[in-house]
């Protein structure tokens, strides 16, 4: 006799050759999905999870949304490599990271509205623990730039209290843990050209166009 029995034990999801079986191969998958959903709910309730996350589609590509119990802690573009972003959250915040839960539902809805031009600002709680010092001052100022407006890196440097720190403003924007929500896309060069963007220039163009009513 061959090892078919052992094969059945190890690959039971696909071994539905039994005529008595009434279960489809997807049932184990569905059951597992339900168990995983219950796990993230319980873990969130008893606060034994550091970060929960979900991935949403958007006109600027798939966005990773991550939150702690204090608020949204990270928004990441596809080009940032979501796996690497999660690894980094594991190191910097804590590795008890689970996908799912409902913590990020409000942000997902607000993003939908934002991309449909029905919303101009985000009012979900944010957790800015990934930004420190001058970068944090820059991010605080960015939330003051109105929807549809732009400022130059130099203007942001002055407004953040260090007029000479133009390059530091650039790196604060490049390391913004909450792009879109904290609108670093509204910072452009003094000559009006786009400058850089952590989500790529196409994404920056899209966001600025959207806010000018061009999308």
């Amino acid at each position: 006799m061959s090892d078919d029995l052992i094969e059945l034990l190890t690959t039971s999801t696909t071994s539905t050759t039994s005529t008595t079986s009434t279960t489809s191969p997807t049932d184990e998958g569905e059951r597992l999905a339900a168990l995983r959903a219950a796990l993230v709910d319980r873990a969130t309730k008893e606060a034994s999870v550091d970060v929960t996350y979900r991935v949403v589609d958007s006109p600027v590509g798939a966005l990773l949304l991550a939150a702690t119990d204090a608020g949204v802690v990270r928004v990441a573009f596809d080009v940032e490599d979501h796996d690497r972003v999660l690894e980094s959250l594991g190191t910097r915040i804590g590795s008890r990271i689970l996908r799912g839960g409902n913590r990020l539902d409000p942000l997902a809805r607000e993003l939908d509205d934002y991309f449909a031009a029905r919303r101009r600002a985000f009012d979900v709680p944010v957790d800015l623990r990934l930004a420190r010092g001058f970068r944090l001052s820059v991010l605080s100022h960015l939330t003051q730039i109105p929807y549809g407006a732009t400022e130059s890196y130099a203007q942001v440097a002055s407004a953040s209290g260090s007029p000479s720190a133009v390059r530091a403003v650039g790196s604060a924007c490049a390391t913004n843990p909450l792009p879109i929500v904290v609108p670093c896309h509204r910072v452009v060069r003094s000559d009006g050209s786009l400058g850089g963007y952590l989500g790529g220039l196409t994404a920056k163009e899209h966001l600025l166009g959207l806010e000018r009513g061009q999308r």
Binding site: L9, T17, S18, T20, T22, T23
Partner: peptide, 13 residues
């Protein structure tokens, strides 16, 4: 067969 929702793939195994 008395617990249809509990029948697993290859329940008799």
């Amino acid at each position: 067969g008395d617990q249809p929702e509990e029948v697993l793939p290859d329940g008799d195994l």
